[in-house]
Structures are given as C-alpha cells and as structure tokens.
Design a protein around this nucleic acid. Structure first.
Lengths: 209, 209
DNA sequence: GTTTTACTCATACGTTCGTTTCATTCAAAC
DNA sequence: GTTTGAATGAAACGAACGTATGAGTAAAAC
C-alpha cells in the first residue's frame, strides 16, 4: 500500500492514542513519534493539539452521524411510529460499527467516542456542530412520539443512557482484569447485547411521580 | 464550625477537583490552593498525587460499598430470589446517594465515581481492593440466580451497563448546554429514573444467539 | 527549660509539556 | 536554470508539572 501522507498518519496515531489515554494523557510528542512524523508537523497541519483533537473527533463522528441519520430516514419512510427496538438499533448501532475489523484493539471507535464524550478536558468538547444536535433532536422527537407519557426530562435521561451504555466497553478496558470478571467481548456480540439491553430500558413505563 | 485539619481539607478539595477535571486535569497546586494549604502538604500527608487520589477514592467508595453490601444482605434475608428491581435498587441506589444535599454541584459523588472508573490515567485505577470485588461478585451471583438463561458474558455486560448508566449525569455535565437539550436534574429524580431504566434493562430476555 | 514531635512554609530541582522558530528539502511552475 | 511554495527537520522557548529540601513554628513530652 502507498504510505499515506503525514497528515493522515498523524490523524491515525492521534485517534489511537486519544482513545487509549485520553486527551491530557496523550502528548504531541507521542503522537508524532507513533506517526513517524516530526514534532512540528502537528502545528503545521492542524495548528494546535486541541484542533488536532477536533479533527480526529470529526473524522470519527461524521460517518456515524450520517449512518444514524440515514437509519432514521429509512425507518420513518415506512411508518411514523417505528418500534422502539428499531429506533434504538438505528441510533446505537452505528456507534459500534465503523471498526475496520482488522483493528488490533477492536472497538476502538466506540472507545474513542466515549473518551471524547466523557473526557474531563475542555478541549475534547469543543468540536460538536449543528449536525450532531440535529440528529439527536430528530431521534428525540421520534422517541417522544412512540413513547407517549414520558416526560421530556425522563426521555432526555434515557437518551443519555443510550450513550452511556455504549461506553460500557470502555469502563471495562480501563479496569485491570480481576478474578471472576469476564473479559470484554468483541464488537458484534456487545452491539447486540447493548441493543437488547437498551430496547428494554427505553420501553420501560414512565417512572411514577 | 471548627475548621477541619489540613489533611481533610486537602481531601475535600481533591475530591471536588478530581470529579470536575479528572486526574490529569487537576494539579497538586490547584488542590492545595483550594484547600488553603501549602504545596508540600500533599507530599507530607499522602506521599504523592497518586496516593492522594487513592485516598479520595477510598473515602468515597467505602460507604457506598458498605451500603451495597447491607442492601444485598437485607434482600437475601427475606428471599433467595429477590425481584430484579430491588436488586438493581440495592446496587445502583447507593451510587446516587451519599451527597450531603447542600452540596453546590449536586451529584458530585456519582460524578467522581465515574470519573475514577473511566479516567484514562492509570493512577486512577490502582485503588480497588478485595472488598469491591467481593460485593460485585455477590451481586453477580444474585443476578445470575434470578435471571436464568442469561450467559455469564451477557450478564457481565449488563452489570457494566448499570455502572455506565450511573455515569449519565457526567456525560451531560461535560457537554455545553445546547438548545433543545433538557438540563440535568437533581439527584433524586435521576436516581429513580435510573432504577426504572435499569430494572427494565436487566429484566430483558437473553439476546438470541 | 529543654527536647521532641508534628506540621507548615517558601523555595528550588528536574522533567515534560505545547508551541515556535528558522533552516532545509524537493517537486512543480515559470 | 531559476524561482516558488508546500512540507519537513532539528532545536529551543517559556510555562506548568510532581516532587524534594531544609528552615521555621508551636504544642506536647520529659
């Protein structure tokens, strides 16, 4: 294969390291070393470490957002009230896919997403654009329609719960393996378990007030 | 009130800052400044920043672990097969409590726990002891008993899902408020929503293989 | 009164960080 | 062949970090 250009190699290396060690735990020097590039290349191609992080996030999130959007379009083209399970799958499914399947760590993408979403560093939260908000609002409206009786606040809580559960792999990865603890599992099984888990959770009747 | 000793003030300040900015995002200087203590006091009282983090984690986790353990004891004293919802409440409930109710940020404790569990820094994961493992294994066995037909792997996945959902607040706190997004809610409502959400999720039939 | 102990303080050390600078390379444009 | 502009390279900058040091303080022990 033709060796990709420096910019792409830096993006790849940064994606890998950010997913594993977070924003603050990854130094520009480590990124450029892994990428086989010079230290100054980050400044030249991206401007700063924070802008590099934003570029990494965009590259990962954009296809996922597109898949979520397309999945919702497809569902709504059939019926205005799709089953909850299909809404969950259209929303959460793309968060598990998008992994090249030959990847060394597996589940690198979902790990990176949750790293980004939960990273305590402010720089990791400055990349979201109107596209992300738009998709979330469309799903919010769809869920509100098929889950009547649920208050907007509780629905918002459950939507955040979906994101949190996709973070499950990450919680485990960062824990040292302990006796009696089953090791995390490859992406496909986790994806289907998550959809089972989340479909039941989303379908729960509203909490009594 | 009598001003607490330096050691306690450092613990309080560190708990606050670690919960908000993570391990790497919090400097020893910021901790001692907020605590009104000298920079060297951390080294004197705790040895190092990593040991301070461990002390903070232990102080937060220990009462939670005790509550989880007591809750399970109480349930199992009545019947060997408690309802799933009560198991969920006994396990997840203490993760939401333990907040002094006059706290400025609310939900500081659960945020700290998830910060610790998901912090990419290695130093944040070196404090767990046999007590934590023991409680988790006991709940694992109880859930396995009342959820027959669930493979150990999927059960482990769902247990991790419980932890992840208690992290829900944290995901939101780190996002800038956006239009159409409902703001996070005080601890009590979130706790009850989480139990509704998780009880339904845990009760889901096993994923088809 | 002296010594001991526990603690706090200002300060400095060595390292690592993100970023910048400037010289150099090299293929395309002229 | 010369010029141009994008890209890369080696080196250094100032700042912030965790940690260590040694003097200073005050109350308890003797």
């Amino acid at each position: 294969m033709a060796t990709p250009d420096t910019r792409t190699q830096i993006l790849d290396a940064a994606e890998h390291l950010f997913a594993e060690h977070g924003y603050r735990g990854t130094s520009v020097r480590a990124i450029t070393k892994l990428a086989g590039a010079n230290l100054a290349a980050v400044g030249y191609h991206f401007g700063s470490k924070a802008e590099l992080m934003a570029a990494v996030a965009r590259r990962v999130i954009e296809p996922i957002n597109a898949a979520q959007c397309a999945g919702l379009d497809k569902l709504l083209a059939q019926t205005p009230d799709p089953p909850v399970g299909e809404l969950v799958e259209a929303f959460a499914g793309p968060l598990f896919d998008e992994m090249p399947a030959g990847d060394e760590g597996g589940a690198r993408t979902s790990r990176l997403i949750v790293t980004i979403l939960s990273d305590p560093a402010e720089e990791a939260r400055s990349w979201t654009g109107p596209a992300e908000d738009s998709v979330r609002e469309r799903y919010l409206a769809a869920f509100a329609r098929v889950l009547p009786g649920l208050s907007p606040e509780e629905l918002a809580f459950r939507m955040r719960g979906i994101l949190a559960v996709t973070a499950v792999d990450r919680l485990e990865v960062h824990q040292q393996p302990s006796p009696g603890c089953v090791s995390p599992v490859a992406g496909e099984a986790a994806r289907r378990w998550a959809i089972t888990f989340l479909t039941a959770a989303m379908s729960a009747p509203p909490t009594q007030t």
